[in-house]
Amino acid sequence: MRKIYYALKYVCIAALVISLVALLAVVAYVLINGLDKLSFHLVFGEYDPNMPTLLPALVGTLQLIGVAAIIAIPIGVASAIFLVEYTNNKGKFVKIVQVAAETLAGIPSIVYGLFGYLIFVVAFGWGYSIIGGGITLAIMILPTIVRSTQESLLSVQGGLREGAYALGTSKVRTIFRIVLPSAAGGIVTAIILAIGRVVSESAVLILTIGMVVNKVPETLMSPGTSLALDIYYFASHGYPNEAAATAVVLLVFVILLNLLAGWIGNMIKKSTYGDAK
């Protein structure tokens, strides 16, 4: 019996090593192939067919984040507030919404892309546009924002709500002054992680924003590209090293977002709970 326990430990260590090696291999591969192409010109320069740059993708990515965030954050947070504070998170309706949200979160993103294509590109006649892609991304991250905001609201101690009501505080004031500030750390972290999904998404955008890699979008109605899309474009159009360099930029972007999420979440927790927690 003893031997099996020891063996199990080593099996687990081996598994850990394999996953670490896989991760490091990806990062190393990207760095080795991309670093010598990575330059100031590549990231911020004017686009040239012989010297492609990421400027259109950078602008496009930021615009997509903006559109998706403006739509998904208020709707997602408000939905979660309704579910937790106004229905007590109980009942058939909440169950249905819950199941729907979990299902939506699990749908492959290309399906969202197809939806966005059929609605915004075809039915609305917008053609490929940043705004169509942004709205589609907003729909894609909504379930995640609703679910994680719900979790954050539910983790607020019931005693705080009771305490506020017992002072004659209205429901709205209790939500805005007591519940939301207490849950803010978790909500902000969830939102930034959802934005991370926007940044790394490509399937949705192939079908909705058109992958125009050589022009900075003039308006939100223009077609465009994003960092993740550029990787696909460069890799499939004979610029493998530029693709790897773009991957480096994207990696840094995502790492920064994740750090930011943790940092802001902690800052807010500190300012609401002081040094007590």
Partner: peptide
């Protein structure tokens, strides 16, 4: 209340 519930 039974459990002190100061607001954060």
């Amino acid at each position: 209340f039974q459990k002190p519930n100061p607001f954060p």
